[in-house]
Design a protein around this nucleic acid. Structure first.
Length: 324
RNA sequence: GGCGUCGUGGCCGAGUGGCUAGGCAGGGGCCUGCAAAGCCCCCUACUCCGGUUCGAAUCCGGACGACGCCU
């Protein structure tokens, strides 16, 4: 309807302070927070994924946090669909949707939507997946060539995961991935917004990660892992494939020391953070405001809030909007 | 002081006359619904000095260093 941004994005790699910042901005703008994070979505992983705490969630409404059973499938598509719903609900309440998270790919699904994937039979899908995982890579390459020649040319190397997607779609829908990409319309309109990306100098970032890992271990991560394991979550569940969980479990079983666990977790987290740093460096097409994350959170929040178009509107108008 | 063993890239670690092992860490990058995932690229080293050889990280001698044992 208007050209003002509809949502506020607060993005950036892990441990740059998105959660705290989003919370603060939400307070200032009377907003609600949507988490664009593939792991904070799971119930029972709150400590190890540094999800907003219950008291933070009580202070400001949050969406997309701790609402999935560990074991459920969560992907960019599902996130995007849910997220659009949350956004329109929040707007209907006259409040500001603040999307905060580090899963860049999820955010892209919002900003550059893709064709709507047809419903694929879950059983067939998983049997196809296990079948593919046994195939030699050369064989996989040959299948890709045959079922989606155009893609075969586009992909410099065939990796199992992407090839799997290609073959899955081709075999189950009768159309190649390339066909879907070229001919099927995007499933939704692109979500526009003001984009803020938090950045941190590498050394500072690393130190922050290390500190946070220790804090998480002191704040109940061990209990969290124990209860996940005791409720039957194996090493393959999304719960246990999240960064750090396996190391914490090894620490619990006294296979490694606490220091070794910290070291391993910090290492894994850093690997992840590096990929995110690269992603946010190049993959965001919209013009994004890049800010140093080591500034004071309140100040930063004020700056972000002040930039929000709505906040420049006279007070009585925004109040009126809220009432109607 | 004597004898022995050993000295390989930031770390670990194979090689034993010609053919850039590999792993980890580090860095750069890719990304069209598995993304805390998956994948690609870079980092071309042999303690030093002589010698043998067409050619030495690899063989010989010496120096230095480390470790071990002996005195």
């Amino acid at each position: 309807m208007s050209c003002r941004p509809t949502v506020l994005f607060i993005l950036g790699p892990t441990a740059t302070g998105k959660t705290a910042l989003a919370l603060e901005v939400a307070r200032l703008l009377d907003g609600e927070v949507i988490s664009a994070d593939s792991r904070q979505a799971y119930r029972g992983l709150e400590v190890g994924t540094a999800a907003p705490t219950p008291s933070e969630r009580a202070a400001v409404p949050h969406h997309g946090v701790a609402f999935l059973q560990p074991g459920e499938r969560y992907g960019a598509g599902r996130f995007a669909r849910l997220c659009r719903g949350w956004v329109s609900d929040i707007e209907a309440r006259g409040r500001v949707p603040i999307i905060a998270g580090g899963t860049g790919f999820f955010v892209r699904a919002l900003m550059q939507p893709v064709f709507r994937e047809p419903d694929l039979d879950v059983e067939r899908r998983s049997s196809l997946e296990s079948c593919l995982s046994e195939l030699p890579l050369e064989e996989v390459r040959r299948w890709v060539q045959r079922l989606d020649p155009a893609l075969g040319v586009r992909l410099p190397v065939v990796d199992r995961q992407r090839a799997g997607r290609t073959l899955e779609l081709a075999l189950m829908t009768g159309r190649s991935l390339t066909w879907w990409q070229r001919h099927a319309p995007p499933e939704a309109e692109a979500l526009r917004g003001r984009v803020w990306v938090l950045q941190l100098e590498a050394q500072v970032h690393r130190a922050r990660i290390e500190k946070r890992v220790r804090v998480m271990l002191d704040s109940g991560w061990v209990d969290e892992v124990e209860s996940l394991v005791s409720s039957g979550h194996g090493p393959d569940s999304p719960a246990m494939t999240s960064i750090g969980y396996v190391h914490v479990w090894r620490f619990v079983r006294r296979e490694i020391s606490r220091d070794e666990a910290v070291k391993a977790i910090v290492g894994d987290t850093w690997q992840y953070a590096r990929r995110q740093r690269t992603w946010f460096r190049h993959q965001l097409e919209d013009e994004a405001f890049r800010v140093q994350a080591n500034a004071d959170t309140k100040e930063l929040a004020q700056r972000i809030a002040a930039d929000w178009p709505q906040s420049t509107a006279p007070d009585d108008i925004s109040k009126e909007q809220r009432r109607s």
